[in-house]
Every structure is written in C-alpha cells, then in structure tokens.
Design a protein around this nucleic acid. Structure first.
Length: 282
DNA sequence: GCCCAGGTGATTA
DNA sequence: TAATCACCTGGG
C-alpha cells in the first residue's frame, strides 16, 4: 500500500537515533522494521509518499501506533523554549525522528545488553539471541527470527547466552526473564501506571538502573516525558548547558527533545558543537 | 595490543 | 548522599 504522511517522518534518522537495534536499511533502499512477529519494509518515493508491504489493516492496527503517528512532531518542535537556541538547533537537526513504541520485553533486554557496549556489538548480541531462541518467521524480509520470549531465554543455557557476547549481563537477562515469566512483573499491566511506578517496577530487575528504565519507559511505553540520560546527553549538558539538565524545563515532551539531543550528539562532530550550538545565542 | 563502549551495583567515607 | 570501582567482550 502507499501512504502520504503529513508530519516529520525520516526512516534513516529513526533508525540512526539509537532507539531500536534490529531495524535496518536494505540494499535496495527500503527500510525494514520488526515488532513481535510482524515485519515491514518501507520505501520512500520521490514524491515524498511511502510504499509499504503490508495491508491497510496491518498498518492501522500495528504500525500506526508503532511509529507514534497520532502525535504531531512538527508541533512538538515548536515547543522549544524561546531562549533555548541550542535545543532549537538540535530539534531542527533531528527533524524526522519519531519515538517508536516497541515491545516492552524486547526493549528491556536490548537496553540491558546495551550497557557498556558499542552499537555494532549490541546489534550482534541481539541478533544472536534471536537466531538461537527466536521463532522462525516466514521469509520475505531479512529478519528471519522473532525476539525470543522469556521462556525461550530461560530454556537457553547460561553458556549459550554468553556465547551471544552478553558477558556479565547474562545474569541480568536471566533475572529479567524470571521476573516476567513468573508474573512478578506484569509488562502489560504497567501500561496503566504512573511514570514513577513504572520506573520503580522496572528497576526491580537486576541490571536495570535509571537509564535503562527510562529508555524502556520512552521507547516501549511511549512515556514521552521520560528523558534517559546517557554519556552522550551528559556531554551536551556539560559542554553546552554548563552542567544544567535542560529536560526539567521540558516536562511533558522531555523524552522527544532528549532524542533530538542524542541524535545530534551522536552524529554531529563534537568539534562543531560549540560553533553550532553555543554561538547560536543564549 | 590498547582503549573504551548509550550503565549498574557494591563498597566506602 | 556522593564518589569510586569492577565488570564480560568486542569493535575501532
């Protein structure tokens, strides 16, 4: 089907904004995403519309929410504080990014794995888990396996988990699987909780601290006021905001601004930050 | 071969 | 509360 999207929607930036670890750009220029057992391939046309290999029904029931299409990001970008020139610049730089609504279970595990790892290493570990313990999907896209369930993870031996490069995170992943499988943590029912309760519950899992919990809140539960702070965000706060965390001033959409900031920090050469941002006024 | 990567939890003062 | 440190492993 073909569709026109009248809002920020840049697949390249969405993938490069570090919120998902399995989506990728195919050699034919199409972009492939996966959630649960559903995969989609999207091609952008020269006239700005998009062609996807799914039915209208699948688009409306799965992908519309996955890409957070009910939110107007162009409008969100106008919410930058008048005097915050740096943020204005970063939001413009990251225009097209959207906050994906991913599977909570997969998001928990992938972000536990992400600690102290480079992005290529994270992707490799995640694909290894899927290949070893995920369900085989009908071919058509390059993603052949779903993300393994808690039970499937627990059926792997610790040795096999370690073979995916999990290292000391192996115990964390097992702990997460046990807490979810046993029902100690009910991922579905967390949808109705407050942010504070959600983060607190997630942090019962070993290896889930402030940063990972906020990532899960933002990228799986669509809590766009959650603003995870990692080393890249910290570099901007130290170098541009003189140690003051600006997200306190952006309450309800803080997580979206955080994502613009992360994308900027990650992709704009650090030697340019001062010129592009600080000299922009303030 | 070295350094460090989208953090966290334990330990110490 | 705040600061310090070890931690598996692999990519650059």
């Amino acid at each position: 089907m073909e569709i026109t999207i009248n809002d920020d929607f840049n697949l390249e930036k969405i993938i490069a904004s570090g919120q998902c670890f399995r989506a990728y750009r195919k050699s034919d220029g199409g972009y492939c995403f996966i959630t649960g057992k559903n995969t989609i391939s999207i091609v952008e046309c020269s006239n700005g519309s998009f062609i996807m290999d799914c039915t209208e029904n699948e688009w409306e029931n799965i992908w519309y929410d996955y890409f957070d299409l009910s939110r107007n990001y162009a409008q969100v970008r106008t919410g930058v504080h008048h005097q915050d020139y740096s943020m204005k610049r970063m939001a413009e730089y990251g225009k097209g990014i959207r906050i994906l609504k991913q599977e909570p279970w997969e998001t928990i595990i992938t972000f536990i794995i992400s600690q102290r790892k480079s992005i290529p290493a994270i992707k490799k570990s995640v694909e290894c888990l899927c290949t070893m313990a995920g369900d085989k999907l009908s071919p058509s896209s390059g993603l052949s396996y779903s993300f393994p369930t808690p039970t499937a993870i627990l059926n792997m031996t610790p040795e096999k988990l370690k073979a995916c490069g999990l290292g000391y995170r192996t115990d964390f992943v097992i702990d997460a699987a046990e807490k979810v499988k046993s029902g100690f943590i009910e991922l579905e029912s967390l949808n109705g909780t407050t942010d504070a309760a959600l983060l607190e519950t997630l942090k019962y899992i070993k290896g889930v601290g402030d940063k990972v919990a906020n990532c899960v809140g933002l990228f799986a539960y669509n809590r766009v006021d959650c603003a995870p702070v990692d080393v890249w965000i910290n570099r901007i706060i130290e170098n541009i905001y003189q140690g003051h965390n600006p997200f306190a001033d952006y309450e309800k959409n803080a997580g979206i601004y955080q994502q613009y900031m992360f994308f900027y920090a990650k992709h704009e050469d650090e030697s340019q930050w001062g010129q592009t941002l600080t000299l922009c006024g303030r």
